[in-house]
Design a protein around this nucleic acid. Structure first.
Lengths: 210, 210
DNA sequence: GTCCGCTCGGACACCTCGTCCGGACGTTCT
DNA sequence: AGAACGTCCGGACGAGGTGTCCGAGCGGAC
């Protein structure tokens, strides 16, 4: 008697979809590194680069945006997880701790910088993809907002700043600078970005007024 | 004997091109206000909204990006001009003066918010348009960078911050928050944006360390 | 050996883009 | 008045990419 629910860990269909997602996005990254524009990155060229037929692509994905949605979903948790270190910056915030926390976010983001930038670009034209990027942004804003409010109640963040608005500004700044500056950036530039990011966040949120 | 250079103020051809640009971009703004996506804003629908035939469109413009380039070029000077007030914030910077200067930038930007956001989106796919947006960004970064250096030499800006990197971060923050938050924002939200923008810039650049 | 699932290439209709052309209209010059 | 000119329009066209569909081939499982 065979297993009633044969290997319910994952549908072979879904597994194959996942495998192809990895392969195709890796191919996309190669092409983007070679200077191919996202607009010129059609399904044809993409599948060709990955060594998969175009018809097979449409077996597993609705369209190019569907592929990017799947990839993005798997990465967004990674990013969100990396931001948790920031919220842990507790009472009596230390500048070194803040830099380490922000540096960890930058490091994680950098791993996917080129594809993240491409995803945010593609989100302009695909409503579903746009919803996913919005989730990442709003979760970041929300986490930072609560962090700010906690700090204000505890007295180590200026009570005069507007938590929601300030969190929004800092989040958009991070998103934009990451996507604009990180793809293909040399280590030196990454360090500089982290430093300035820290400088601004520190100056806006934690610096003692005295 | 007729005029050798008949009314050399402006070619009638170029004038007509300018008129159509205004009409078409106004039509584009209407459609975007009605919730039409930039991706769905084809030449067909655009010209139909403006009451111009599609064939006439191609007489005066290479493609949709060409239209947007012409419009953007005419508006970028306006924006750059508005930022000059910021650089004028002189020795012994006053918080009220900073808010007024940044508020002026927000006010000007707001006039074109929806179309500016659309232009930055379209710049993703059109290299020439991208170059134009990059000019706006890099001019802003450059102006701010020089402003920072001037302040550092005069002693009213922290010499410890990196002028280029910091200017880049603040500029991208402004671009992103403007394009994301200003389109269709009620006056209350605009005020809040200006306040937070001022709060951050003040805290990062001018606040006395004491 | 036969069935089943997967992959592939190719063909197809569809859409948008950018080009091109002939006809219609109004103005200007003779 | 009539001719010449510029402008606009609708329509037709090919090119290129998208998403769908089908039949052929191939390997593993029964």
């Amino acid at each position: 008697m065979p297993v009633p629910l044969p290997a319910r860990t994952e549908s072979p269909r879904a597994r194959r979809r996942g495998e192809l997602c990895v392969r195709l996005m890796a191919a996309a990254e190669e092409l983007l590194d070679d200077g191919v524009t996202l607009a010129d990155l059609g399904v044809d060229r993409l599948t060709q680069q990955a060594g998969v037929s175009r018809s097979s692509f449409y077996v597993y994905f609705e369209d190019r945006a569907d592929l990017m949605r799947l990839w993005f979903s798997s990465v967004v948790d990674e990013i969100v997880e990396a931001t948790r270190g920031w919220w842990a910056v507790g009472p009596a915030p230390d500048r070194g701790a803040v830099r380490d926390a922000l540096g960890a976010i930058v490091t994680v983001y950098r791993l996917h910088a080129r594809l993240m930038a491409a995803t945010f670009d593609a989100a302009t034209h695909d409503a579903d993809l746009r919803r996913l990027t919005d989730v990442l942004i709003s979760e970041s804003v929300d986490g930072l907002r609560r962090h700010i409010i906690r700090g204000q109640k505890a007295g180590w963040v200026d009570p005069g700043l507007h938590p929601e608005s300030c969190a929004t500004h800092l989040t958009w700044m991070a998103e934009r600078t990451f996507n604009q500056l990180l793809p293909g950036a040399p280590p030196r530039a990454v360090t500089q970005l982290t430093e300035t990011y820290t400088y601004i966040v520190w100056g806006v949120l934690y610096r003692r007024v005295d």
